[in-house]
Amino acid sequence: MHKIPSSEITPEHLFLSRRQLMGSAGALSVAALLAACGVRTPGAPATDTVPADARTDELGDPLNSFEEITTYNNYYEFTTDKQGVARLATGFQTSPWEVQVGGLVGNPRTFALEDLLAFEQEERIYRLRCVEAWSMVIPWVGFPLRRLLDVVEPRAGAQYVRFETVFRPEEMPGQRDRYYPWPYVEGLRLDEAMHDLTLLATGLYGRELTPQNGAPVRLVVPWKYGFKSIKSIVKIDLVDTMPTSLWMALAPNEYGFYANVNPAVAHPRWSQATERRIGERGRRETLMFNGYADEVASLYAGMDLRVNY
């Protein structure tokens, strides 16, 4: 056994002051962090700000701000960092853009973005509920997917609709990560796709869709968890078998095909009973079908939603 040189022994007074430092740092930081959590982040002003909008959704809850909607995004094709998407998506090429619509249809067609914008556009204020248990109220601009499907004339055998996101790893750094089976794929049952609430969105807050929100065209299915609302769509196919989404492929026991917002059915590892509305403190109860039960519950009549999660 060797002796510890005296230079390695901390003098008692230093030792004590360090303890005090650590203690007071702890106390201070608790107070400061708790305060920080309650504060609505001021945030740097976005380059193109949109004035505050006093409107609400049909339940009376205020819209989230343009800044909130465009700075907090899950878009793994760019990055898994929700705050980092906006910067990485800047300059993403959304024009020219084409969406191929085919599969079991009588009239397969490729729609240029201009063709999509030629459909009559309308504003829809929808709640978006992320599977991560946060939510926003968003004024989308777009048109019901049904109208596009009517144009291509689904054939009798078509039972599902399969959607695919653009694959451009040179522009989307997250797609260079081979862990994920890119491109992103999502699917809907045909009757879900034909439902009036199901929107092809091309805009946000009365203006063009921002790249971080899925420009130039994305799906919005407000009664399902946000990941079902696939972004930057380039391909829509009508098919006769249930499509396997990217999340189903990654974790089949955790992400089902339906992914309906359902406070009674927990994700296998975490509860979905509550959520945080962005901009609010604390939590609020999650609503069945994200508050759209009156409109969509009939789609699932007789189905066990615990099995078909």
Binding site: A36, C37, K82, E132, W134
Partner: peptide, 22 residues
Amino acid sequence: PLALLLFDAATGGLSVNPIQDV
């Protein structure tokens, strides 16, 4: 890490979901 967190909190560097960030 605490200093960076407090700095971000003070300068608006946290996201719009600050509780989750922290």
